[in-house]
Design a protein around this nucleic acid. Structure first.
Length: 600
RNA sequence: GGGGGUGUAGCUCAAUUGGUUAGAGCGCUGCCCUGUCACGGCAGAGGCUGCGGGUUCGAGCCCCGUCACUCCCGCCA
């Protein structure tokens, strides 16, 4: 039963040897007098021939009764396939194994969905694939994804080790912290009424490790966030978590550039150039309308504030007078936009707080637009030159406060690019990797509803030293030493240089973020105290490992690179979790359930 | 919390827009077949059209509700 070779190993040099293969019945072709069975394991496939003239009847009968995905052990002789019957699609296609013995180790029932045809299986609903994940994972594509994931992890560990980093595990039973993502809560049996929280990141532990003198820490850390899911967001996920002492931003950039270069080289064989370009948050917003620009295509935002400052078109000039901006993008060639596409874009504008969507379609040499009649000849000329307007273009405008205007046009830019790409009018190369650093984020954002400032990143982010004096006077002008790494419009990770002075940290918590002193002490007291006993300046970063692997695998959803992912509602279709627990368990945990019984 | 999409045979999809007995390919079962690799041929089984209500002479199709999956917004320090 023990295998002598795996199923992608046998070649012409093995001809004449007796071998044993173990694996799954990939497919059976029963020609009546002769039966072919492809045996598959994780490495590949080999054709086995059952010839009744050379076999005991019971062995042949077992072969005739084999079903797809039964697990078998086959012993036989390797021989060259007869001339003309070689299969060039199979790596082992020059040879075949002439069966002598067959043992069925586990007979499979009829499968809920086919897994032998990649094209067919790719169409099977994800719901079914998740319920029978063990079948889904048998597909070569899925095994490949898991291998890419493993390889990326292995390369990361090797690289970080070479760079002098120590991998340290931190608790997953942590403490609830205010602010930030919603947490998963774990009741404490030994401490009635008290709760742990699963960490949304090892942030505080890794900073404490810097105080502990570790200097260079990393971890492939599991993190948990009880927020709504997306194609690129799971409630539990993995990040490459890194922290270093005595560093500046440039040290982190160089480290990560080296890491990503190494991963891309060893996993994909692709050379990516370093250093990565850097873009300020302000410039990214101004040019791309997002803090994670996809620069593989143009369609950049153009500022028209000065052009329309004194325009007769009041919607624009009023917006400028109110301190806002006027911006536009030229969706080259998108005058072909359908009615429903224009409606979709108008909905996006309304969702962004605009009254509607101002646009110009350039068709038949005409500017077709409800608003162009309000423009002076000078304004039209400026538009034409600034936007490079040609036949077939679609110009989309937005006017109002800077940030919403940029964000709206950023979304419209992506929408137009996607539509143009689908129509074959724009090529967004999938094999191009545009890495970019975004930096100089505002340290603080204002929450109008609660009338208070909150951290754009997290409250441990250090302000730029020259901006510290502005903290009390002009908080919105303070830039943080925060940075994001972006590739092809995907936020791959982010980090910052941290605050290491307890006074400054206390000031941020209590004066800027308005967290009451007793609350600060309760939640972060141990950190503030730790910083009193010799805290080195430090900084770090975390990369979304699932996203990174998804990019390496060229897949849209991180579910494709996680062995057992959750659905959009956070359930596991295979194990049927979450589920109810027994009254006894609840009692031990001092928990009383008030929610109506879930639909079990 | 909000918006969009999907749900018909084991799987992937049709069903002339409300009309007779809901079809096809693959898979499955049986028979035939000694060089197939998407094997082929013949025959057959297989349906609470996600679920519950409603409108109608009549509903897979229209309406209301609900469940599941999915995409997006909010949310994700």
């Amino acid at each position: 039963m023990k295998r002598t070779h795996h199923c992608n190993q046998l070649r012409v040099e093995h001809i004449g040897q007796q071998v044993t293969l173990t694996g799954w019945v990939h497919s059976r072709r029963d020609l009546g007098g002769i039966i072919f069975v492809d045996v598959r394991d994780r490495e590949g496939r080999t054709q086995v021939v059952f010839d009744p003239s050379q076999l005991p009847p019971d062995v042949f009968a077992r072969a005739a009764a084999l079903r797809s995905e039964s697990v078998v052990s086959v012993t036989g002789l390797v021989r060259r396939r007869p001339p003309g019957t070689e299969n060039p699609k199979l790596a082992s296609g020059e040879v075949e194994v002439v069966a002598q013995e067959l043992e069925v180790l586990n007979a499979a029932e009829v499968l809920p969905f086919p897994i032998d045809d990649p094209a067919e299986t790719a169409k099977v609903s994800e719901e079914l694939r998740l319920k029978y994940r063990y079948l889904d994972l048998r597909r070569p594509e899925m095994i490949r994804n898991l291998r890419v994931r493993h390889k990326a992890a292995a390369v990361t560990r090797a690289y970080m080790d070479e760079q002098g980093f120590i991998e340290i595990e931190t608790p997953t039973l942590f403490k609830s912290t205010p602010e930030g993502a919603r947490e998963f809560i774990v009741p404490s049996r030994l401490n009635p009424g008290l709760f742990y929280a699963l960490p949304q990141s090892p942030q505080q532990f890794k900073q404490i490790l810097m105080v502990a003198g570790i200097e260079k820490y990393f971890q492939l850390a599991r993190c948990y966030r009880d927020e709504d899911l997306r194609a690129d967001r799971q409630p539990e996920f993995t990040q490459i978590d890194i922290e270093m002492s005595f560093v500046t931003r440039d040290d982190i950039y160089a480290l990560i550039e080296g890491l990503l270069q190494r991963i891309w080289k060893e996993v994909l064989g692709v050379d990516i150039p370093t250093p990565f370009p850097r873009l300020s948050f302000a410039e990214a917003m101004n040019r791309f309308g997002t803090d994670k620009p996809d620069r593989r295509f143009a369609l950049e935002l153009v500022d028209l504030t000065d052009t329309f400052r004194h325009s007769q078109f009041k919607v624009f000039s009023d917006a400028v007078a109110a301190g806002g901006v006027v911006k536009a993008i030229n969706a080259k060639g998108f005058s072909s936009a359908t009615q429903s596409q224009v409606e979709a874009m108008t909905e996006m504008a309304k969702a962004a707080g605009m009254k509607g969507l101002a646009y110009i379609k350039v068709e038949g040499g005409q500017w077709k637009s409800p608003i162009v009649k309000f423009f002076s000849d000078g304004e039209k000329a400026t538009l034409a030159s600034k936007l490079g307007i040609d036949e077939g273009d679609l110009i989309l405008f937005a006017a109002g406060p800077w940030e919403p205007v940029c964000e709206l046009l950023g979304r419209l830019r992506l929408y137009a690019a996607q539509a143009l790409a689908q129509a074959g009018m724009l090529r967004i190369p999938a094999d191009q990797y545009d890495f970019i650093w975004i930096e100089d984020f505002p340290l603080l954002s204002f929450d109008k509803e609660n009338n208070r400032w909150y951290s754009s990143h997290h409250p441990f982010t250090a302000p730029l030293p020259e901006d510290i004096p502005l903290l009390r006077t002009e908080p919105k002008k303070v830039r943080g030493q925060h940075y994001d790494i972006v590739v092809n419009g995907i936020e791959l990770g982010g980090g910052s240089i941290r605050i290491h002075q307890p006074e400054l940290q206390k000031l941020i918590f209590e004066e800027i973020l308005q967290i009451p002193p007793d609350e600060t002490k309760l939640r972060f007291g141990y950190m503030l105290e730790a910083f009193k006993y010799g805290a080195p300046p430090h900084g770090g970063i975390a990369l979304g490992f699932d996203r990174l692997v998804a990019i390496l695998c060229g897949t849209q959803s991180i579910r494709d690179v996680i062995a057992f992912p959750k659905t959009a509602k956070g359930t596991c279709l295979m194990t049927d979790s979450p589920s109810t627990v027994s009254p006894r368990q609840l009692k031990e945990l001092h928990i009383e359930v008030k929610a109506p019984k879930a639909g079990a």
